[in-house]
């Protein structure tokens, strides 16, 4: 037995366009509980970013506090990162993004981190359409502090302690939709087939891309009576669509005959290809997404997949017409353009 991750890898590991293997995207060995859903999400992030051939140094990982927020240590060990304060990842991410718009922001948070202490921060990152991927590893509890019910726990759901939760749950995906998020999806840590392409699409999306990932806490919330355990989630999952993220050149996988396919082209020319299980969902309509989510919820089912996206969205930098390059690249003459320019500004304000 060892507790150190061996350095040997499969000799035939595929390489991506940069010549890297998945190993170049790994982080340190996880210290989370064995079987924690969060680890699978870390694995999906590694897989997605490896497949997208993003140079690790072009990524900044942002997180708050919680088991979920610890995960950036366990993926993308060669990327930048900021492990912030409980619930404050959105404001730190906003600052970082404002200062350097060239980096790709991968935010991970927990349901406690985002739906309780960080709710206010979360809301503003969404409404500003901050250009980032924001994943909530949603286990319905505060894992790190030993499993208290979180604000996403369903009414009546029981955690390990066995006491039914008396409060109404916050559905972060619905909140994000209502607050103007331009990409909203839901998935399950145990379904990498769905999650990996969603992450790729979320990263390619320009603007705030939100993914609510159900991620069972094996230690405190994986018991009978919980609506966030592996078994319950698997039994109640329903997918709106399967998603395939296709960089421009590649071939698209075919849908099953009983499915309709739809393609959404993103700003960079890549394509999100959907095979729809339920034709009623219009991924370009917030209304449709909200209705469908409610419908499935009333039915006791959890709707997953890509729920909404606006491929033409304007992200924060475009909206406020901020500097076109990272602040570190601005020279003295950019920042101090001289008295002539000042005179002009003053003149325009008279």
């Amino acid at each position: 037995m060892t507790y150190i991750r061996p350095e040997f890898r499969h000799p035939e590991l595929p390489t991506n366009d940069l010549g890297y293997t998945k190993q170049n995207y790994e982080g340190s060995i996880s210290t989370l509980c064995a079987g924690c859903g969060h680890d699978s999400i870390s694995g999906a992030i590694v897989q997605a970013i490896f497949e997208m051939s993003i140079p690790p140094h072009n990524i900044a990982k942002m997180s708050g506090i919680g088991c979920s927020s610890k995960t950036p240590t366990y993926f993308l060990g060669n990327s930048h990162g900021f492990n912030s304060v409980h619930g404050r990842m959105p404001s730190v991410a906003t600052g970082a993004n404002m200062a350097n718009r060239d980096l790709i922001y991968v935010g991970v948070s927990g349901d406690g981190d985002s739906a309780s202490i960080g709710m206010g921060q979360f809301a503003h990152a969404v409404r500003r359409n901050l250009n980032m991927m924001y994943i909530v590893m949603n286990n319905g509890c505060y894992g790190l502090t030993k499993g208290q019910d979180s604000a996403t726990a369903d009414v009546g759901s029981k955690s390990k302690k066995g006491i039914p939760n008396p409060f109404e749950a916050i559905d972060l995906a619905a909140v994000a939709l209502q607050l103007g998020a331009t990409f909203v999806a839901r998935s399950f840590s145990g379904d990498k087939k769905q999650l990996v392409p969603l992450i790729k699409a979320a990263i390619a999306h320009r603007g705030f891309a939100f993914i609510d990932v159900l991620s069972p806490c094996v230690t405190f919330n994986n018991n009978p009576g919980s609506t966030k355990g592996y078994e319950y989630v698997r039994d109640h999952l329903a997918a709106t669509n399967t998603v395939d993220f296709v960089p421009m050149r590649e071939e698209i996988t075919a849908c099953y005959p009983n499915q309709t396919s739809e393609e959404v082209t993103l700003h960079d020319g890549s394509v999100v290809h959907l095979c729809k299980m339920d034709d009623k969902l219009n991924v370009h309509s917030r209304q449709s997404a909200l209705n469908m989510m409610q419908e499935y919820k009333d039915d006791g089912r959890i709707l997953t997949g890509l729920l909404y996206m606006d491929p033409d969205s304007q992200e924060l930098h475009e909206n406020i017409d901020s500097a076109k390059k990272p602040l570190r690249g601005l020279t003295e003459s950019d920042l101090c353009p001289g008295s002539k320019v000042l005179d002009n500004i003053n003149e325009s304000l008279r």
Binding site: E7, F8, H10, D39, V218
Partner: peptide, 15 residues
């Protein structure tokens, strides 16, 4: 097995 993927994710040699 609860199919949580933990083994798949940790395996260093993708077995």
């Amino acid at each position: 097995c609860i199919e949580c993927d933990a083994c798949v994710d940790i395996c260093p040699t993708d077995c």
